[in-house]
């Protein structure tokens, strides 16, 4: 059972849907919106499985746009 909980906040206006965060995620948390697009027409990233997030911030490090903010909290 996970002892830490993470949360990924995506700046959807800035996201260009490059998919690099999705690939870097070790826990299958992130995915690109299958249908929704932002103002510029990109399928932005979102938390598909929010419960899986461990707050490792891999997505934040590889994001070229700097549109990801990561939080992490210990639970239990």
């Amino acid at each position: 059972m996970a002892k830490v909980k993470g949360y990924v906040e995506v700046n959807t206006d800035r996201c260009k849907g490059c998919n690099l965060c999705v690939i870097s995620c070790p826990s299958d948390t992130l995915d690109l919106q299958p249908r929704e697009v932002n103002d510029r027409g990109y399928h932005y990233a979102f938390m598909k499985n929010p419960d899986e997030c461990i707050g490792c911030a891999n997505c934040g490090f590889v994001c070229p746009e700097g549109c990801i903010t990561v939080y992490r909290k210990k639970v239990g």
Binding site: K5, G6, Y7, E9, N11, G55, A57, G60, F61, G66, C67, I68, T69, V70, Y71, R72, K73
Partner: peptide, 11 residues
Amino acid sequence: IISPENLVYAK
């Protein structure tokens, strides 16, 4: 979870 003390990574 979203609070400044839990911040791990930001732009």
